[in-house]
Design a protein around this nucleic acid. Structure first.
Lengths: 156, 156
DNA sequence: TTAAGTGCAAACCTTTTGCTGCCCC
DNA sequence: GGGGCAGCAAAAGGTTTGCACTTAA
């Protein structure tokens, strides 16, 4: 059994919740896709295996998975929440044109963050670090000055 | 006249838009509050001066201000969009308990970001960097392990 | 047995849009 | 004078919730 299933089972038993078929199915479907899924996308995947599952259950289960620390929410500015497996920490590069998402990690930044937090008396629990720009493919297609184009990624 | 008013006027005349009383009033109100306002908050402020202005106009004007590069949107995970004046770039420390928001800047991080983007072939347009944690006040009040408490800041 | 979970539909909240009349340029 | 704007209300889109029924423990 995967680590994630174990964590979920433990959280469920510790909190007097119940392990249902739906919850296991949704977790499995979530694990089967890598990356940053929306609730709707996950719902579509789950539906193929069990068309009886409702969107509300997907939302409720995703929130449960957040509560037990397996999943984190992200908002990349396109109006919907994306859910992501909590693994080794990483951050994101997002292309504002084609919406490609690239993950990156950088230890130096993590260290500086800790330092900044300490200076302000904070203890960091988590962080989000997103770089928005044009990926190499999209740079070639368009070279207009930033300020003149409608900045979709900020407008949502 | 403030720099911001000038930028707005220029953007408006260049794009064959119109400078209305409402737009000027909303910009002024926006400038009068520092920090990270929601559309609703700004609407409340504007209403005190001119109760005839509608919420839709506030949204439309905020989007206009984003388009002309004066304002940026931010989502700190509490379910609503916040608008912030684009000034010297800075990032945010957010207390997950009392929701205090502290701004910070760090040149080293900016440099590393550029480097990371270059490695992935990206050209950065903007970025968001948010550290979530407990501020010094809230650390004293609560010292429970993270994983066992409901992570409100992630759930929204 | 019974408290928690599910599906469904309705409610909610924030943000956008259609429309009609208005006003800046 | 004409095209963009404002106000209003309705729509939209994502997420949550109330309810009656079902099911895990």
């Amino acid at each position: 059994m995967s680590r994630e299933k174990q964590v979920l089972r433990e959280y469920i038993s510790q909190n007097k919740l119940k392990l249902t078929e739906q919850r296991e199915l949704i977790l499995e479907a979530f694990l089967s896709v890598k990356g940053h899924v929306t609730a709707e996308e996950l719902y579509q995947i789950v539906c193929k295996q069990n068309p009886m599952i409702g969107l509300a259950t997907v939302y409720r289960t995703l929130n449960l998975l957040c509560e037990c620390g397996l999943v984190q929410q992200r908002q990349f500015g396109d109006g919907q929440t994306r859910y992501e497996l909590v693994q080794a920490h990483h951050d994101h590069l997002i292309c504002t044109k084609c919406r490609k998402i690239v993950e990156f990690e950088n230890e130096d930044i993590e260290k500086i963050q800790e330092q900044i937090a300490r200076q302000h008396g904070f203890i960091i629990q988590t962080h989000k670090h997103e770089l928005y720009g044009l990926c190499s493919d999209c740079q070639d297609k368009e070279r207009e000055p930033l300020i003149t184009e409608k900045q979709d990624f900020l407008v949502y």
